[in-house]
Simulated scan of single mutants.
Amino acid sequence: MTARSAIEHLSGALARTGGPARLHELPFPSQVELRLDDEDADSFGPRVGQFLSCDIPAAARATGGGDPYVLWLGPGWYLIVDRPGRAPGLLSGLHGALGGDCGGTCGSAVDVSAARTVLELTGPAVRAVLNHGCALDLHPRAFKPGDCAQTLLAQAQVILHQTAPHDYRLFVRTSYADYLARWLLDAMSEYQAAFS
Score class of each variant (00 low, 15 high):
Leu52Ala: 09
Ala97Glu: 14
Leu26Gly: 01
Leu23Val: 04
Tyr176His: 15
Glu190Tyr: 00
Leu152Ile: 01
Asp137Lys: 09
Asp186Gly: 13
Ala109Ile: 01
Ser5Tyr: 11
Val129Thr: 10
Leu23Ser: 08
Leu98Lys: 04
Thr174Gly: 04
Gly19Ile: 07
Phe51Met: 10
Ala149Gln: 10
Thr17Asn: 07
Ala194Val: 02
Pro46Cys: 02
Pro46Gln: 04
Pro145Trp: 03
Leu14His: 02
Asp186Glu: 15
Ala41Glu: 14
Gly19Asn: 08
Cys148Ile: 05
Arg61Asn: 04
Cys134Thr: 03
Leu73Glu: 14
Arg141His: 12
Phe51Gly: 01
Val118Cys: 04
Leu90Asn: 01
Val70Asp: 09
Asp137Gly: 11
Ala156Met: 12
Gly107Leu: 10
Ile56Asn: 09
Leu14Ala: 01
Pro29Glu: 11
Asp178His: 13
Leu138Arg: 06
Asp42Arg: 08
Asp101Ile: 01
Gly103Tyr: 12
Asp178Asn: 14
Gln150Pro: 02
Gly12Ile: 00
Ala3Lys: 08
Ser53Val: 01
Asp167Trp: 10
Gly76Pro: 00
His166Pro: 00
Ala142Leu: 10
Glu8Trp: 10
Gly76Asp: 01
Ala181Asp: 04
Ala193Pro: 00
Gly89Ala: 14
Gln50Gly: 03
Asp178Arg: 13
Gln150Trp: 07
Pro84Gln: 12
Ala115Asn: 13
Pro46Arg: 03
Thr17Ser: 14
Asp38Lys: 09
Gly76Trp: 02
Gly89Pro: 00
Ile7Gln: 08
Ala6Ile: 03
Thr163Val: 08
Phe28Lys: 01
Gln157Val: 15
Pro88Ile: 07
Trp72Glu: 13
Gln157Gly: 13
Ala115Phe: 06
Phe143Ser: 10
Arg116Asp: 14
Arg141Ala: 11
Glu25Trp: 08
Tyr69Ser: 14
Gln155Asn: 15
Gly66Asn: 12
Asp55Ser: 12
Arg86Thr: 13
Leu136Val: 05
Thr163Gly: 05
Ala177Val: 03
Arg47Tyr: 05
Glu120Arg: 14
Ile159Ala: 11
Arg35Trp: 06
Ala21Asn: 04
Gln31Met: 15
Ala187Ile: 02
Tyr179Asp: 13
Ser189Gly: 02
Met1Pro: 11
Ala154Lys: 08
His24Phe: 13
Thr17Tyr: 09
Ala60Pro: 00
Ala3Val: 05
Tyr69Cys: 14
Ile80Glu: 06
Trp72Arg: 08
Ser30Tyr: 00
Cys102Tyr: 15
Leu185Asn: 07
Thr122Tyr: 02
Pro75Gln: 15
Glu190Thr: 10
Phe28Ala: 14
Leu52Thr: 07
Gly99Ala: 15
Leu91Trp: 00
Leu153His: 03
Asp67Ser: 15
Gly146Glu: 10
Arg22Val: 11
Arg173Ile: 08
Pro75Arg: 13
Ser113Met: 02
Asp111Val: 06
